[in-house]
Design a protein around this nucleic acid. Sequence first.
DNA 1: CTTGAAAAGAACTGCCT
DNA 2: AGGCAGTTCTTTTCAAG
Lengths: 151, 151
Amino acid sequence: MTTLDDTDRAFLRALADDGTLSAGDLGRRFGLSQPAAWRRVKRLQEAGILAGRRVDIDLEALGFGVTVFLGVKLAAKGRVSLEDFERAVTAIPEVQLVHHVLGLYDYRLRIVARDLSDFERILRRRIMTLPGVGEVEANVLLSEERRPGPI
Amino acid sequence: MTTLDDTDRAFLRALADDGTLSAGDLGRRFGLSQPAAWRRVKRLQEAGILAGRRVDIDLEALGFGVTVFLGVKLAAKGRVSLEDFERAVTAIPEVQLVHHVLGLYDYRLRIVARDLSDFERILRRRIMTLPGVGEVEANVLLSEERRPGPI
DNA sequence: CTTGAAAAGAACTGCCT
DNA sequence: AGGCAGTTCTTTTCAAG
């Protein structure tokens, strides 16, 4: 674990919002020279705090207008059935995230579909037929707000 | 909505995995020249499909080892109480994501905490005191797998 | 679409306070 | 820690086929 100063936090917040910012941009924005900003970014990367960079793909622009969060409870929870379930669920193209969780459900999935009838098809043909699936609970996404988190 | 060819899909998958890839990298990987690859990336950006770039911050490296998904049901759901709830919940630093959803719960939150007793503090002092909160249901994250999605 | 080249900008290094 | 000056490298952008 590493501790950060205010400038590090400002850098992380800025980069979480816009990953295209260069060291020069960050320096100008927060009153540091380009090399000083660059050294900070490098330090954050080497500490593993800046873990990677990704692009944001707008699936709605591609016709995937429905996002559903699905809680899944397994019927039989042997060690084998967890692995079987994970292997099968990650093979479904519409599944974006697989969270193995503790609580009322065993897994939480984020699933995208073109529309609700497309989601029904995925649920009936792909999800309910997965090995070991018991109860499921669905929540359809209306709106999403991303926050910087505790940095 | 836009339709993509196989190369576009390959670009998006590669960039979703590693946002640092340049047009030259993508071209080499998928058999295009650098300018051709660059024009494709630009087209995807202008179509809004490549919506932005962000860095991945490893909150575990900063001492936030616990992630909890929290379903929240509101007790009274007037129009005003939704906005009050959203304003109050987005002000909690540990809240990373606020999903307004349809289903058994009204909101789904992604919350990070240093440990479980830190999470208990957030839950009791910050969440349960939010305006209009009724039932809550928590799932503690054990492991997370990200998938490319249906592109 | 390609190649080639020029221009711009970002990354990186040494040295100094 | 940070700044300045400079070099190197990559990316961007244009020209021409």
